[in-house]
Design a binder for these strands. Structure first.
Length: 194
DNA sequence: CTCTGGATTGAC
DNA sequence: TCAATCCAGAGG
């Protein structure tokens, strides 16, 4: 398995409606070329954060933290929650602050590196949550603003998912009723638990 | 269920 | 300066 030669998802992909991006990103491959080797996995769970959405970090305007959300599409917005980093893909044109949170990944390549980073060898716990997958993939604040189209951390073409489930989002206190979370029913084993 | 514990934000 | 808040995770 070597996903580093798969075609990368281009800039236009991230210019689509954010809910469409959140759906279509399921099944694609998150890939990180590190000095120690390639780490890759299939995205199986996502959430959309959109305009007019109270749970969007950018809902109350631009701050130092959320400024990359206002930048061009196809870049990584990485922020810390509690003690964990979370990875988002910025969508929409420059000036519009929307993003897709990547919540879970099925481990595919570089699993020994994931085990090393996560300090667990329980496969289904390696990447089944937003904080777990960033640790497994060695993603942190230095990736904030990095380009997911041209960089070492990128998203490449995977497979199309037929059995997509749409539900409400996890862990938020506002906008709880909005059905903006998506996961692949075929990959339930790798999806985070509520 | 509880405990852990980093960083941002906006109030004072 | 400071405390509330935040898109968790681990362990029991």
């Amino acid at each position: 398995m070597d996903f580093s030669t798969n075609p990368v998802l281009n800039r236009e992909f991230y210019l689509q409606d954010t809910v469409v991006v959140a759906k279509e990103i399921i099944g694609q491959i998150l890939l990180h070329e590190t000095a120690d080797g390639i780490i890759a996995g299939r995205i199986v769970e996502s959430e959309a954060y959109i305009n007019g959405d109270p749970a969007n970090h950018a809902a109350r305007g631009m701050t130092m933290r959320n400024r990359v959300m206002f930048g061009p599409p196809g870049h990584a917005y990485v922020y810390m929650i509690h003690t964990h980093w979370c990875l988002n893909a910025v969508t929409q044109p420059d000036g519009v602050a929307e993003a897709v949170l990547i919540r879970a990944v099925e481990p595919l390549e570089g699993i020994h590196l994931m085990i090393q980073s996560r300090r667990t060898d329980v496969f289904r716990n390696l990447c089944s949550g937003p904080g777990k997958l960033t640790k497994a993939f060695r993603i942190d604040r230095k990736h904030n603003g990095s380009d997911l189209v041209t960089g070492h951390l990128r998203i490449v073409e995977g497979q199309r998912i037929r059995n997509l489930v749409q539900t409400t989002r996890i862990g938020i206190s506002q906008g709880v009723e909005l059905p903006l979370r998506f996961y692949s029913a075929e990959h339930l084993k790798w999806v985070s638990k509520r």
